[in-house]
Design a protein around this nucleic acid. Structure first.
Lengths: 98, 98
DNA sequence: TAAAGTAACTTTGCGTTACAAAGTACTTTT
DNA sequence: AAAAGTACTTTGTAACGCAAAGTTACTTTA
């Protein structure tokens, strides 16, 4: 049992980072504003969660412009996708008491 | 999306409380020692997590003896079972981006 | 009968996290 | 020129997580 719990990824215990990841795994590039509005977060809060995901190489950041407005977009890395999958597997095992 | 995230139960974001609940939903009464050993926790840590679950009426506590040794057992309440189920449903919806 | 063990905590203390709110820098719109 | 937009960073505070040590109330062993 303990080993299953340890397979849960600490970074994904947060509902917000779970939300970010679940959006990113099904969308190619998602921008800051979209995440902010979809998840209804303050700028600072979202930025810090994104930062923790970036620091662990779970997401890529792309800074650019749309028209002349700055735009920051995010996508999940291969590592992030793999870790997320592992986390979901662990969750499933835990819940089903395998 | 935000509404799904809000359906995730804050109390179940913790891997340990998730572990406790997943044990309790499939066992009638589970004692302190078993939980402690299965989850590999210190007494204090386990006690505090159990306390938070009890405070929210998610678990029952039964104090008694086995032979002459004190024994504390826990079981999930109807509320706890229901909330856990709701949490898992929310998790599933979030992950599947419904 | 004194020491050690068991069960289940509570307390202490510290480091980490979460978050809102305010501040920053730059740009664009009005 | 003023207001608003984008994407942060900084600040400050409250909550959380956890190990370790202390506590209570026995029971068992030497």
């Amino acid at each position: 049992m303990k080993d299953i719990i340890l397979r849960l990824n600490k970074l994904f215990e947060s509902r917000i980072r779970l939300g970010i990841m679940s959006i990113l795994v099904v969308n190619d590039w998602v921008d800051f504003k979209y995440l902010k509005e979809t998840l209804d977060l303050t700028d600072g809060n979202l930025a810090s969660h994104l930062h923790s995901l970036e620091k662990n190489n779970y997401i890529h950041v792309r800074k650019g412009f749309i028209g002349r407005k700055p735009n920051t977009s995010f996508s999940v890395t291969d590592v992030g996708r793999k870790e997320f999958k592992l986390h979901l597997n662990a969750l499933e095992r835990l819940i089903k008491n395998i």
